[in-house]
Design a protein around this nucleic acid. Structure first.
Length: 286
DNA sequence: ACTATATCCTGTATGC
DNA sequence: TGCATACAGGATATAG
């Protein structure tokens, strides 16, 4: 489940391999990953030929690959999307949905996606900031993020803090795994009403989220090979670096209390019932 | 203007 | 062994 750190690893891998290269051909093997492309699969394939990539960009979990002509190839990995750079003619990866060949002899670009929640589409004029990304808030690594404005926004939301962290229009890049990790680090229960958190407490939580994701980014980056852009979903969360996610019944790293898993928003929340006490009153939103 | 929820999708794991 | 079901959770349309 790629979140900010994993998407950034992919972005930087593509940045090392794509700028300056011109697309020679596109093959769409499955229409679903290009469902957001306005003209349909055929238009997607023919419309990209001849375009030249520049430096890939990212906001939260959204990626876009600008072209020299001012348009951009939008991409989202969803749950299981992967970009791979493979030797031309090599066997395509499992669940390969879209393939790009280039006018040079360098690696081909493949998009594989098992569950197909991810996808790609052309964003006309999207090189600087695609309209599809405009509603997404800046992420915690964006130099232009106004942290104090974010703190204020979080404190006026009337919902549980985890819902707020997962809301990509408040702050982007955080998914279920890093939300749980950040909340554990900050010793907060996921149902704590965000409007009852003090300013320092919210700052602490954001610092925890930055720290957790920076650690994952460093871990994901070290094993990264530019010719194999690995986003298989489990990379980056190499077992030892996670404190709570997926650690049901295992001891809390702070107090040894067994970690519990609870159903939350059609998914799971992992937490330490001792370090992260449930608030007396839940969120006032109804 | 917010907030909450159903929906999409398929490989893997588990239960009977 | 085989079938059925649960589970994983991104973003978004829609309901409240």
């Amino acid at each position: 489940m790629p979140e900010l750190p994993e998407v950034e690893v992919v972005r930087s891998g593509l940045a090392a391999a794509l700028p300056g290269r011109t697309i020679a051909g596109v093959t769409v093997h499955h229409p679903r990953p290009v469902r957001r492309h306005t003209g349909g699969p055929e238009d997607f394939a023919t419309g990209l030929v001849g375009r030249t990539f520049t430096e890939p960009r990212r906001r939260g979990k959204f990626l876009w690959l600008p072209f020299t002509d001012g348009d951009a190839l939008m991409a989202h990995l969803g749950m299981s999307g992967q970009f791979r750079l493979d030797v031309p003619g090599s066997p395509p990866p499992p669940q390969c949905r879209v393939e790009f060949t280039f006018t040079d002899s360098g690696p081909e670009l493949r998009f594989a996606d098992q569950r197909m929640f991810g996808g790609m589409w052309l964003s006309p004029g999207g090189a600087e900031l695609p309209v599809e990304v405009a509603h997404i808030a800046r992420d915690l690594f964006d130099p232009l993020l106004d942290t104090e404005a974010l703190v204020a926004d979080i404190r006026r939301r009337r919902s549980g803090i985890k819902r707020v962290l997962l809301n990509q229009t408040v702050v982007s890049g955080i998914g279920n795994i890093y939300a749980d990790e950040s909340l554990w680090q900050a010793k907060l229960h996921y149902e704590t009403p965000s409007d009852r958190l003090s300013r320092p407490r919210v700052r602490e939580l954001l610092a925890a989220a930055r720290e957790v994701m920076a650690g994952a980014l460093a871990a994901g980056g070290t094993s990264f090979d530019a010719l194999y852009v690995n986003v298989n979903g489990s990379s980056g969360y190499n077992g030892g670096s996670l404190a709570v996610y997926g650690r049901e019944d295992q001891p809390c790293l702070r107090c040894a209390t067994p970690i519990v898993r609870e159903a939350f928003m059609n998914r799971s929340s992992y937490l330490c019932p001792s370090c992260q006490k449930r608030p007396r009153r839940a969120s006032s939103a109804r």
